[in-house]
Design a protein around this nucleic acid. Sequence first.
RNA 1: GCAGACGUAGCUCAGUUGGUUAGAGCGUCGGAUUGUGGCUCCGAAGGUCGUUGGUUCAACUCCAACCGUCUGUACCA
Length: 517
Amino acid sequence: MAKTKPNKLKARLPRGFVDRSAADIRATDAMLAKIRGVYEAYGFDPVETPAFEYTDCLGKFLPDTDRPNAGVFSVQDDDEQWMSLRYDLTAPLARHVSENINEIQLPFRSYRAGWVFRNEKPGPGRFRQFMQFDADTVGAPGVQADAEMCMMMADTMEALGIPRGQYIIRVNNRKVLDGVMAAIGLGDPEDAERRLTVLRAMDKYDKFGSEGVRLLLGEGRKDESGDFTKGANLSATAIDAIIEILEASAIDDLIDDRNDLTFKTAALSKLAINEEFEAGFSELKLISDLVTSAGYKADRISVDPSVVRGLEYYTGPVYEAELLFDVTNEKGEVVQFGSVGGGGRYDGLVKRFTGRDVPATGFSIGVSRLMTALKNLGKLKDDAVLAPVLVTVMDGDTESLARYQKMTQDLRSAGIRAEMYQGNWKKFGNQLKYADRRDCPLAIIQGGDERAEGVVQIKDLIEGKRLSGEIADNVTWRESRPAQISVPEAELVETVKRMLAEQADDRAKSGTEGAGA
RNA sequence: GCAGACGUAGCUCAGUUGGUUAGAGCGUCGGAUUGUGGCUCCGAAGGUCGUUGGUUCAACUCCAACCGUCUGUACCA
């Protein structure tokens, strides 16, 4: 061969995207089935929308021509209309409901799982394509719908095998936060920017603790690399009040509602309670009563005034599911996992399209994130599916191939996963090597000698692997043909069945760890 | 987006003050062994040293820009 080297195309995956292995796909499928089971039990029906939407329907401003892909992946259609890959499943649902509002019976209860795309900087456990599994009730004005969502999230966590006490559904209300904003003097429309800064700072309580949040609420914070984040410049009293909210474990720690509603902590009590806050508080009270009487105590669903989510479009109750156990990543570091799902009430989203008030509430579970966590909890088997039995090929003539193929089909007909070797049959050693690397449980062997006697060899590859530790010399290893039995051709299927059952018993006895719930 | 660290074989990494032919382990492939996985031994393939430009007699090594990866931070529907 000449030394000329063609320009080989470099095989590469776009950053922030991943290929999924057989084990991942099977684990995801199993998870989705469990989640779906809960949603179906609550009376939700599946609805699916496409991956692309017109950009304006997603609620994003028209992409400006310089950076049409900021945050979202956008392309221009033939007619120059901007289209984008969806970045969540809620906006497309609002579009679907609005477009079919005359045919849809409200309240409309639906669920959907799908890939969503975000054009952002990827990080560990953070991808530009990931899966969400949503459930929404559209056309339900009462907070009882929100309460139901919280209970359904809690049930989903447990259906996935997360024990009670290892997760918590935390509930808050945008009206409560808006009321607090007004109380600290940020209620005017022109304060919108500072309000956002304050809410974002509150959202970072988990990450930076109260000291970090204090800085962000005040003058600003410098991070480890020396980069400076500007703060909200609140007064000392306002900062203290917000820290009190963040540090409270329940809303009753902050509020005295025996007669009139009053704040009872030091800094908050200097502020006046307003109508907005009061409305939010009574909604939270109602949700709490509803879920409590349905048997969901505070160890599962808890009102927590520090929850901040979806600053853009949530209008009332907001809720999120948080895992409480430690998660260790591949490098052995403990990572803060935080929220694996969340949602809230979005009363304005359908109105954008229809002009009608169509209140809605729903939540989203981050399937990919949750799967990473479940792996750590040992709730996912590595691969639940057994590799196939391999029928090896000793002779390549048509008649022999037909016999091997027939054996393979007989095994399949008996419900046994089986395949005939499809590589180069002349290298017999490679066939067993292939079987070994695929983790095949058994190999079927029939050469001319066996054929003449009307028998087949069945080799137990699992047992053989165990025996290999005791044999150092290759010639002995080959000639002893470990863990291999010879049976009449007619008994092939039943013997394979029996041996697979014995292997399954062994696995059940020794390897009970990692068994899924 | 901002700030910092880092880019050498498929993977993990050596590579001296700038010096002639860039190495190792693992993995891959072939052979010892044409009908038996593992172990062992022998052999082979595999590199635009991230890219482009600059300094120099000479660059994997120094400089710049770009690309990519990682970390922190910002944004996150």
